[in-house]
Write a protein that binds this DNA or RNA. Structure first.
Lengths: 245, 245
DNA sequence: CGGATCCTTGAACCTAATCAAGAAATGTGG
DNA sequence: CCACATTTCTTGATTAGGTTCAAGGATCCG
């Protein structure tokens, strides 16, 4: 049975086309917005495709825009004054990229692959947060997930061997791969979004060590390296057994 | 001048004595609650002093209670099946300890010092979150801070030397010490809440390495070790210079 | 095809781990 | 309060996993 409720005047806006076509619409934070809020967001947001290396947020710099990742991968990294670098997180669709309630980011956010983003002004989002508890709730849930991820990575960096780290990374990518070919003849295949240097920066290793461990995992028949960036895992359980947990 | 506002019937409850005396009341998440909410929370919360080693949340176990830290220090840790351990966070007053929206914790929370807690049922908090956006906002802010801390630690574990890690840890503790004696004759003095073994688990090192680096920092006149747990920093800038950032 | 970037492999080195012992601090019961 | 047991911490010797330095091979792209 239908309830009769007064129609809020602002809610007569239709869902914008941009959002209607957005794959992240119902999984990401925008799912918390009503049509009028979506409409306002859309008026000031734009969809863009950015190339690898494009910086979205810069450490110690005032931030003017936040983004949602619609496709591709974004890395979050920190750097010491002497140049040592650590990747502290990877973001996939439909993740939100930004640090609400702080005028500047403490880290750098950079596209690692060709990436599709929905970008909008920082202040607009912060205003919408204050108007929509539902939106803040979604952001909170994402923050909690990122916290779990960060702490898993802490265990990896603090206590795992090089081989275990590489296996852990491969498993993580496999699980995030949308087109990881299922169990056809040769197990699961997927593409690494990161270069060896980036994998090293993620795992707290050097590029040489990453390369050597991939070679050794190949030698143990845990993986096959079909091309530099293309990995195949014949038996996912074998890979899981290499992660240490 | 006083404003005349209608008094919400439920808000006639006075602020409970337990909360009135709570030092964390206005800094922690309870600051987001009105008198009636506080009153309900208090009815089902209890203040307790727990001894070092007491487990508050256990990995892979359903959690029935959350807590606020009122005094003391709580460690959050993860363990691999073979026993390797990593501390992934330290919580001080007035931090909230718990993982909302997840029936079980992915980590273990344990008192490291004698600790004062305000403990209450998990489901009560989750119900109050759904009723109070202000409360969820405070929790979100804390989660964002914990995320920043976790990512700082990632940089430490992934890229710093043993000496830099120990210096980074000492600086962190110094900054969290309420009774760090100010700049009397000998600089800043404070108490380490953790054993050497726990410091090692926090920094991804062994107990021997922590001990050796403390000895070396002493040899370089960056710190003085007055007792095992008592450190003095003659010049805080010297210590900062050892952290690598 | 040529140049640049990315990746692999080898050899030497080094930092931190491991193994081992003893010293200092803490706690306990007489 | 002291003697003893236990835990915690320090120090030394050795080992090993990963880094650094160096060179050569793939791969990619104009």
């Amino acid at each position: 049975m239908m309830k009769l409720v007064p129609i809020a005047p602002l809610d007569t806006d239709p869902v914008p086309d941009l959002c209607r076509a957005c794959k992240a619409r119902n999984r990401g934070i925008c799912g918390a917005l009503n049509a009028s809020q979506l409409s306002e967001l859309t008026r000031r947001a734009h969809r863009q495709v950015v190339e690898p290396g494009k910086t979205l947020l810069d450490a110690e710099q005032p931030t003017s825009n936040y983004s949602n990742v619609l496709a591709g991968v974004v890395k979050l990294s920190k750097m010491l004054p002497d140049g040592r670098q650590q990747i502290v997180g990877l973001q996939f669709a439909p993740d939100f990229v930004g640090r609400p309630f702080s005028p500047e980011s403490s880290l750098k956010a950079e596209a690692v692959t060709s990436t599709v983003l929905c970008t909008f002004p920082r202040q607009l989002l912060e205003r919408m947060i204050s108007e929509s508890p539902e939106l803040e709730h979604k952001l909170y849930l994402q923050a909690l997930d990122e916290l779990d991820d960060a702490r898993d990575l802490l265990l990896t960096l603090g206590r795992k061997t090089a081989r275990e780290r590489v296996a852990t990374f491969l498993l993580m990518i496999a699980r995030h791969s949308p087109h990881a070919d299922g169990n056809d003849e040769g197990g699961t295949g997927f593409e690494l979004p990161l270069t060896r240097a980036e994998i090293a920066d993620f795992l707290g290793l050097t590029i040489e060590t990453v390369s050597r461990q991939l070679t050794k995992l190949k030698g143990s028949d845990v993986i096959r390296v079909e091309q530099n960036r293309r990995i195949r895992v014949p038996d996912m359980e074998l890979l899981e057994a290499e992660t240490g947990d």
